[in-house]
């Protein structure tokens, strides 16, 4: 970070003469101190992973989850101030529920991201509030199959509905990242928090185009674990827990639901991650760490 606010950082509603909102920039600082969170969108699903720093040995292992379920097909991971993240999740659940109540169908990942982006942005406008101290990664799988109206009974013709435009596909995996300013984009791979630079560098090496030949959901789980381990900085934080969730389509392992990655698979991914780190360490002399500083602004 560059300068101090010199009076222009006292409230959200005040711009600096060079057009900056310092409160938002300070919020970004809060995120930069949070445990790394990443999301990977691949051809058959989405993986969310966080590096949960263990701040005390007195905390129960596995408790205080940092990735939340928002609707059956939607999950949110975040980095930064945990209470802000909790509130973000509450609001996301309300939005998803309100959509369901009105339209009797699940909200799409894009629509949720749009609404939450709007919500975060509103916290950059007023004197009386401060921006969210989090960057949130929203992952979801919008059904590729036709969804009924919630509660409907009966069915159309057994030969299927006529007149569909068959050239178009619908639904699929989606990933969005929303920053404290309210800015949000769709991503193939997203990273935020402490280790984001290293994580982004690793994400860029993956084939996430979504096309055939791109990595699969299972590979993405292993890559996500490895990236969190790579991004973890032993010298600053001793211990962390890897928390991972995934969402596949109806024909995949989670049947369209946002769920925690099964323990066995997660442990396997962690084992591979540790192994990869060890072999990296051995090669340290030949291959220097790439991309570490490249992304810095």
């Amino acid at each position: 970070m560059t300068s101090i606010g010199t009076g222009y950082d006292l409230a959200n509603s005040i711009f600096s003469p060079d057009g900056r909102n310092f409160q938002v920039e300070y919020a970004v600082k809060a995120v930069e101190n949070g445990g790394t969170a990443i999301g990977i969108r691949c051809k058959d699903g989405v993986v969310l992973a966080v590096e949960k720093i263990i701040t005390s040995k007195l905390l129960k292992p596995g408790a205080n989850k940092r990735i939340a379920t928002v609707d059956r097909h939607l999950g949110v991971a975040y980095s930064g101030m945990v209470p802000d993240g909790r509130h973000f999740v509450d609001r996301a659940r309300d939005e998803a529920r309100a959509w369901r109540d009105t339209f009797k169908t699940p909200i799409s990942t894009a629509d949720l991201a749009s609404r939450m982006g709007g919500y975060m942005q509103a916290y950059t406008l007023y004197q009386s509030v401060r921006p969210f101290g989090i960057t949130a990664i929203v992952g979801g799988f919008d059904s590729r199959e036709e969804a009924p109206v919630d509660g409907e009974v009966g069915s159309g013709p057994s030969c299927g509905a006529g007149g569909k435009v068959s050239s178009k596909t619908h639904g699929g995996p989606f990933l969005y990242m929303i920053e404290p300013s309210g800015l949000y984009w769709g991503y193939y791979g997203a990273a935020t928090g402490k280790g984001r630079q290293a994580a982004k560098a690793e994400l860029e090496k993956l084939d996430l185009s979504g096309a055939e030949g791109g990595i699969t959901l299972e590979q993405a789980v292993k890559e996500a674990a490895r990236i969190i381990y790579v991004a973890h900085d032993d010298s600053k934080d001793k211990e962390f827990e890897l928390e991972m969730t995934w969402i596949s389509g109806a024909d995949g392992p989670t049947k369209g639901l946002h769920q925690e990655v099964p323990k066995a698979l997660r442990e396997e991914a962690e084992r591979l991650a540790k192994k990869a780190l060890e072999s990296d360490d051995e090669d340290e002399g030949t291959e220097e760490k790439k991309g570490e500083e490249k992304m810095e602004e």
């Binding site: 009924p148 109206v149 409907e152 009966g154 069915s155 159309g156 509905a161 006529g162 569909k164």
Partner: peptide
Amino acid sequence: GWDERHGGQVYSIPLGGSLHKQP
């Protein structure tokens, strides 16, 4: 109605306000 994704569909809503998808 007709839409790109679902083609032609018919829904019936009789008196009590139930919703029935039908051919």
